[in-house]
Design a protein around this nucleic acid. Structure first.
Length: 263
DNA sequence: AAGCTTCTCAACCGCCGTGGC
DNA sequence: TGCCACGGCGGTTGAGAAGCT
């Protein structure tokens, strides 16, 4: 029997999104907020699966996304969080404002994994590879690496960063802000514990306040026109919010900015 | 310049957790 | 209590880009 498909496969378009589809999706979400993804395609006039719409929005169209490669500090933060949380990409992404789980997952698989292996570190356990080979006979070891990592941090991941600069070019400048972010998160055990305990992610919270619900955005007297909004969103796609300098804002500042924008 | 290989990342797939009935 | 619908997540795929010979 099995589950029903998430959407009617017949007549549902797949593959890369066109600019026109993007615009329809942006238009709809700006107008109505993020409501029922399943019904969205029909309401927005898209021949897409609701999941596909959600993915497109969260991974590409959201205006608060940073574009471009992860900075050195972000990369180090990902390594550190992965050592503690395992492949919980959404949780890791929640600690990196403007980054998506998909983006981090991709970066991990294409860059960080290789880098760690090169450095002799097992990307799964974050243990040195030779040490790993000695202990891998133990049936319990590595079975649930995430569980192991959360209970203790031997500092392997943190140490692993030392020769990062020699192995990978720094595509983005590693800012002081990034370093502060890294330090504050990595040193905050309670924060990491709360992540492990499925506390609501802050970055998502900040975003949630960005998109007005249909009921709450009726007062549009001061809002830019839809054309302006869409143009701005599409600009964000091209340049990334990072390029506007918004990434220096913390979540509260973003909230404030978003609240102000709604007024 | 052309063909081949490797890399990147957007997008899809299927499973899981949760809430409503 | 079980079923269903839905949103969300992580693993995987494949088309296009980039690099190499």
């Amino acid at each position: 029997m099995g589950r029903q498909p998430c959407c009617d496969k017949l007549g549902v378009k797949k593959g890369p999104w066109t600019a026109e589809e993007d615009q329809k999706l942006i238009n709809f979400i700006l107008t109505n907020g993020q409501c029922c993804w399943r019904a969205l395609p029909k309401l927005a006039g898209l021949r897409r699966c609701g999941k596909s719409c959600r993915l497109r929005w969260t991974n590409y169209l959201r205006p608060d996304l940073k574009r471009g490669l992860l900075s050195e500090a972000e990369e180090q933060l990902v390594i550190d969080l992965h050592a503690r949380l395992g492949n919980r990409w959404s949780k890791i992404a929640a600690r990196l404002p403007g980054r998506t789980d998909n983006e981090i997952k991709n970066h991990w698989n294409t860059h960080i994994k290789k880098k760690l292996v090169k450095m002799g570190i097992d990307p799964v356990t974050h243990e040195p590879l030779n040490k790993q080979s000695k202990t891998e006979q133990s049936p319990s070891h590595g079975h649930n690496s995430a569980d192991n990592h959360i209970t203790e941090n031997d500092g392997t991941a943190a140490n692993s960063s030392e020769d990062n600069s020699s192995t990978t070019p720094t595509e983005n400048c590693s800012t002081t802000d990034d370093s502060i972010l890294l330090d504050s998160i990595c040193n905050d055990e309670s924060l990491l514990t709360s992540l492990w305990l499925d506390e609501p992610p802050l970055a998502d919270d900040s975003w949630n306040s960005t998109v007005p619900a249909a009921e709450t955005c009726n007062d549009q007297t001061s809002l830019p026109s839809w054309e302006d909004s869409i143009a701005w969103l599409l600009d964000c796609q091209d340049f990334g919010i990072h390029d506007f300098g918004f990434d220096c804002l913390n979540d509260n500042e973003l909230n404030t900015t978003n609240t102000y924008a709604k007024q």
